[in-house]
Design a protein around this nucleic acid. Structure first.
Lengths: 222, 222
DNA sequence: TTGCATAAGTTTGGATCCAAAACAAGCACT
DNA sequence: AGTGCTTGTTTTGGATCCAAACTTATGCAA
């Protein structure tokens, strides 16, 4: 049984969407794990109806897959899909940072700095993941219309599993490179240098993509 | 009352999703029009339940908006959102054409040519719209993994309304320019010239975006 | 023992029913 | 006449019930 934490909305099915999404992102379900409507309904003390609606929504978001009469599973993102998503991110997020920069105030910048510090000093994986996610999404907080950030967020959501595994096996050299990217990005944002900022973001994503692919190769080999 | 045309799937709610999507794209509902669950249910001879699921899905796709206890309306894309979508398209679709070109065979190319001809000779708006959509989506048919094309399709869907209005008021000079873009794109695809093809796509979208914005300015002025 | 067929048990999909919220109309009151 | 309140209607949200499909277990035969 789970309480619907925080400010629960008026409509139950929306709460279920958010709660389930969070569960999946936190890794409480694993890749491909079955999600039974009845179980979820029991957890939230609801009937299966709002759960079904929620699962349909999460399916459209790409977080679960539903097979007719067989039910819902946490979506499994395969190697090529992962590559695709990162390629898309490398096209979209440079745009996002360009649109964001003109509208970020100093308060945001200092929050970014403290998040960067938190990542550098983080010991456990979960803390790093959370700070990393928050850092990047916050760097796009100046984007005026939510369409782009929604899309970016969806990309992040569907690849969360891999980022977790990646953070576990990543060597310190890779981490260093990522940390330095973050610091450079903050500087470029301070300077309002759109060109440099978007180039940093693009390369940051492409580097991560390539390292992820190497990791998957090694996984397959062993 | 409406028969669920073509090959209907096993699951009713999926059929409703597809049928409703098509209705909206065909312009049978207008901007912001209310969609009552009961009406749709009656149309398809179903209960409201699968309709509700369908509406939730279409909401996540961006085709309808749902307000709690107030119901669903066909989504209204405002001027800035439209601009955003076209800006995203200008970032994503050049990628799509690059990934597509290596995998398109001559059969596709000749289909593209006949679609281009059909557009050039088309008299009524609806025929043009359909050919235009089919042309561009088919040009991406070589993309290996559906993630990118799904995204592109979603962009097209949410801007269909505007494309219809645009096609109605567009002057022949604009049409000429678009036709020539299409022919150039086919040539670049034949030559397997990724650079040129993606540049054409990018400019094509940006031109259309700018012309759309001018159209909206004029709408507001009068 | 292995393979298949059949039957029991889950689990999902859909219909119907009930509650709650929004909307509309009529009334009293200023 | 116009405004605000109250009541009745419509429409959505959620619960329960039933049917259909899938899954698992069992038994029979090769």
């Amino acid at each position: 049984m789970e309480t619907l934490g925080g400010k629960s909305q008026q409509v139950a099915s929306l709460n279920v969407v958010n709660a389930l999404r969070e569960r999946i992102l936190e890794g409480r379900y694993s890749h491909g794990e079955r999600i039974r409507q009845e179980d979820v309904a029991e957890d939230f003390q609801l009937s299966r109806l709002p759960v079904r609606e929620a699962l349909r929504v999460l399916e459209t978001e790409g977080l679960v897959t539903i097979e007719p009469h067989k039910g819902a599973r946490v979506a499994t993102v395969d190697r090529f899909e992962l590559e695709q998503i990162y390629t898309l991110r490398a096209a979209v997020e440079p745009l996002a940072i360009q649109q964001s920069i003109p509208n970020v105030d100093p308060a945001i910048l200092s929050e970014l700095e403290s998040l960067a510090s938190r990542m550098e000093s983080s010991q456990d994986v979960e803390a790093f993941l959370q700070a990393d996610r928050e850092f990047h999404l916050k760097s796009y907080s100046g984007v005026q219309y939510p369409l782009i950030t929604d899309l970016v967020q969806r990309f992040w959501n569907t690849t969360q599993h891999y980022r977790r595994r990646f953070a576990e096996v990543r060597d310190s050299e890779n981490f260093q490179s990522a940390h330095s990217d973050h610091r450079m990005l903050i500087q470029a944002m301070k300077d309002k240098n759109l060109e440099v900022a978007s180039a940093i973001v693009k390369r940051h994503i492409e580097k991560t993509r390539d390292q992820l692919m190497v990791m998957l190769d090694e996984d397959e080999r062993q």
